[in-house]
Amino acid sequence: MSDISEERVRHLAGLARIDLSDSEVTALTAELAQIVDVVAQVTNAVEADTPATSHPIPLTNVYREDVVTDDVLTQEQALSGAPETDGSRFVVSAILGEEQ
């Protein structure tokens, strides 16, 4: 059985920055518990020494030349989709937490 609790779901929602309502937390707790029970089978499917695959097609040393390209956006383009700007920068509400 999984260890999914409402408290854990709230914690995860905090990490994921989603302000879940109480009813969402309740529903998600039940669904996640059910899902985790199913997906947890992977732990028994592999051995400790099985190598992990993070990329389906193995490549290495894929690099870009150190030159500026025409992908650079104008300030207007950069700000074009923003909910709020001061004309040159993005505006956000007061920040509670500190820089990391």
Binding site: V68, T69, D71, V72, L73, Q75, A78, S88
Partner: peptide, 18 residues
């Protein structure tokens, strides 16, 4: 990203979508 790495500049002028 291929945006210029330069100190200063007008805000948000040294960016690409990346």
């Amino acid at each position: 990203s291929s945006a210029p790495n330069e100190f200063g500049g007008d805000p948000n002028t040294h960016t690409t979508p990346v």
